[in-house]
Structure formats: C-alpha cells, structure tokens
Amino acid sequence: MTHFTELPLLPEDFSWFAMSPRMWRQNQRIFLILSVIFTGSCSDGWKMAVSPVVTASRGEDAVLSCSLTNSKQQQYSGKIHVKWFARESDSSPFFSCSVQNDSATQGLGDCSFSELKHSLTGDPRRGELSLLIRKVQLTDDGQYFCQVELDGKQRLTQKTQLLVPAEPQILSLVVVETPPASGSAPWRLQCEVEGNPLPKLVWLSASKLKLDDQGKTTESGRFRRIGEVPYLEGEELTCRAENSLGGAQRSYPPSQTLMITAVVCGLMGALLLLLLFIAGLVHCRRNRGERQKHRLQQAPVDTVYENVVKGHRVRASDPPADGHSEIQLVYSVVDSPPAHQLVSSSCPPEPVVLYSPVNVQQINRECHV
C-alpha cells in the first residue's frame, strides 16, 4: 500500500496566476485580436476593403475607396448602414446614410448622390461605400474610417489615409509694433506661411544671405507657421518658406519693379489700341470716299447733275439777269468735261462748271454757231 505525503503549497506554485498589469494588457490585446478574427470569420463571409492611402492636390476632388463583398450578398435583404468618421474616437460620423438591400426597393434614399462636400460615389447595395470629397483643402488631410452596419448586428470598420500635399505659400508679410514693456525692438517683421508638409521659415538679408538672428517661430495651425524678426525702418528683408515640394519667398518693403512693369505694359497696350483705332478710322473713310467717287463715275450725267445741284435749281420766281426771260441764273457745280472734249470743241460740252450767273441762251447760241 502506497502512502502519499501531503506537502504544503508554496507561494511559487501560484506564480502563473499572478500576472503584472503590463502582461495583463498584452494578453488583453491578444484576446481582442483573436475575437476580431473570430468575429470576421463568423460574419457570414462579409469582407471590407479600402485604399490604404489616397493623395489629392488642394482644390481637386478625392475619392476614398471602400467596398463590401459577400458571396451571399444577394440573399441579404436587411438594411445597410454606411458611416464615415474623421477620427476613430469620434462618437458620431460626419457622414452617414442607410439603404435597404432589396432589389425591389426603388431609390437610394439619403445615400443618393448629391453636390454636397461629402457624398457616396456608388450604390451600397452593390457594396460601393466609397466617399467623395469635393475640392479638398489642407484641413481635409488626415485619417478616415469607413464603417458599415448590417441590421445593427454586424459591424465592419477599416481605416484609410488622405494626403493633401501643398507647396509653401506666403500668406502675409507685415510690420507689427512691439509692446513697449516687452523690452525688445519697437518694430518686428512678421511672416505667416502655409504648406504641407509644414514649411521651414528662413529670413534673408538684402544681399540674400541668411540672417544671424532668425527671431522666433510659432505654429499657428497644423499647416501654418509664423516667424518674427527685429526690423529697422528702411531695411530690406526676405521671408522664405521651404518644404519638400518647393519654396516661396516675399520681400519687404515690396519691390516696385513689378508695379512699374505693369504700368508701362498697360500704357503701351492703350497706345497700341489707340493707333489701331485711328488706322481703322482712316481706312474706313478712305474706302468710303473711293466708293462715292466710283459711284459718281458710273452714274449717268443727269443723275450726277440732280445729286449735285439738289435744291439749287432755278425757280420761276427768280428774276432774269438782264431783263430777258430767256436768261436764267445757275448757282450749281457739275462735273468738268474730259480733256479730249475741250481740245476737239470750242464750246464747253454739258455738263459744264458754272461758278457765276451766266446767260444760258447766249451760251447755247454761240455753241450752235
């Protein structure tokens, strides 16, 4: 018969129960990961996919792709609730909509496309959950989370990143007055820059050399920085901003070269327009004169005579020149005869130029003789 001796339990035998807080947190993370894997494997085959990183320049439209797939999606007739979060810790999404996954249902409800800042680019019933962000700005840069809920029981979430790169810009360059109690220079030159990545600010002298005193720099936002240096009246300084995409700079006081160039170009343009206007006016008048001359040359003599004398015909009430009724006064001008007619005849052919009162009957009688 075998006898067993009961030995006392030592504290070392319970050491595997006694875990440090750090070890407990690690085990908790492992448990959460395993639970997520287990939940995903038991979520009836639903899978979500997103683009890890999306890049869009400032002012462009960006699409954060997010899709949901399931081999048995057509058999699901429940509700699909789409949510987009700007931060994982946010309790409420900045965009959300829901639609019934039923082919017989008409319309997308609040998931329909719109012209707002944020909207979906597809139909959630086909697994299209992508988010459209119109005219992205630097403030849109950051992480986004795509989330979908199915009947309020299953939930899937994926993270994506939107990058909005931007070259440096000089937002302002002004002289500010320093409070007297500060003990520093009475005037300081202040420069505010913007860009993504956040630009580095450098001060240059009039000779484009780096100043020994770079002053102080503070961040006024996620993508903005303000720099200040002491400033003496009449001094020329340049603020330069640089990042991996490029650089920008501005000098104070502002250069007058650009303004002078603009004024000169404006005056030259105005002078050119004036010359073109005068040339066009002269050309039009010359053409009009040539057309009138051509019409006079082509028109019959009677028509020319009628156009020239117009209202200057002799009236019956006009008195005769020397008392005889056959004599009439003519105060009109008509075309001159050609040169060959003057040579071949001693009498002026009609029409004739009459500059003074004449005896028409006497002229006709002399010509017949």
Rank of each mutant, 00 (worst) to 15 (best):
H3K: 01
F4K: 11
W16S: 14
A18D: 14
R22L: 10
M23N: 08
L32N: 13
T55W: 00
E60D: 10
V63I: 11
C66Q: 03
K72D: 10
I80K: 04
I80H: 06
H81L: 14
A86M: 00
R87E: 12
R87W: 05
P93K: 00
F95Q: 04
S103W: 15
A104M: 05
A104K: 11
K117A: 05
G122M: 07
D123E: 14
R126K: 11
K135Y: 03
L138S: 13
G142L: 03
Q147L: 03
R155V: 08
Q158L: 02
T160N: 01
Q161A: 00
Q161P: 00
P168I: 03
S172K: 11
V175D: 00
P180R: 04
A185K: 03
R188L: 07
Q190N: 09
C191T: 12
C191M: 10
L198S: 05
L201P: 00
V202Y: 02
V202H: 00
L204A: 06
E219C: 13
E228H: 07
V229W: 03
C239T: 01
L245Y: 09
Q249C: 15
C265R: 14
A270S: 03
L271G: 10
R285Q: 04
R291L: 03
L296E: 07
G311Q: 08
V314D: 04
A321E: 08
E326H: 14
L329E: 12
S332A: 13
V333K: 04
A339G: 01
L342G: 06
V343I: 04
N364C: 13
R365N: 08
E366A: 12
E366W: 07
C367R: 05
